[in-house]
Amino acid sequence: MNNYSTTVLTMARHFEVPAEKVYHAWLNPEMMKKWLFTLERTNKIIRNNPIVGGDWEIVDHRGGVDYRAIGKYVELDVPHKLVFTFKMPQFSEWEDTIAVELTETSQGCEMIFTHNINVPHEPSWTEADIEKAKAEAYDGTEHGWNLMFMGLKELVETGKVSYTG
Rank of each mutant, 00 (worst) to 15 (best):
N2D: 12
Y4M: 10
T6N: 10
T7H: 03
T7Q: 01
T7C: 06
V8S: 00
A12R: 11
R13P: 00
H14T: 13
H14M: 11
H14W: 02
E16W: 01
A19T: 02
V22A: 02
Y23N: 08
A25G: 06
E30F: 02
M31E: 14
K33C: 09
K33E: 10
K33H: 02
K34Y: 04
W35E: 07
F37A: 01
E40A: 15
R41T: 11
I45N: 08
I46K: 00
N48Q: 11
N48W: 03
P50H: 10
P50C: 12
I51T: 15
I51W: 08
I51N: 13
G54D: 09
G54R: 10
W56N: 03
W56Y: 15
W56F: 15
E57W: 04
D60S: 14
G63Y: 08
G64I: 10
V65D: 06
V65C: 04
Y67R: 02
R68P: 00
R68F: 00
G71T: 06
K72E: 11
Y73P: 03
L76T: 06
D77T: 14
V78A: 10
P79I: 08
T85D: 04
F86E: 13
M88I: 14
M88R: 10
Q90N: 10
Q90G: 06
F91L: 14
S92H: 09
D96W: 05
D96C: 12
D96A: 11
A99Q: 12
L102C: 06
L102Y: 07
T105Y: 07
T105F: 05
Q107A: 15
C109H: 03
E110R: 13
E110S: 13
M111Q: 12
M111C: 14
F113Y: 13
T114H: 06
T114S: 07
H115G: 03
N116W: 02
N116K: 12
I117Y: 01
N118C: 07
N118F: 07
V119K: 01
H121M: 07
P123G: 07
P123D: 09
S124T: 13
W125E: 08
E127Y: 00
E127M: 07
E127T: 09
I130Y: 11
E131A: 15
K132E: 15
K132R: 13
A137F: 11
A137C: 08
Y138N: 03
G140R: 05
T141Y: 02
E142H: 11
M148S: 14
M148V: 04
G151C: 13
L152I: 06
L152G: 03
V156Y: 04
E157N: 09
K160R: 12
T164P: 00
T164A: 08
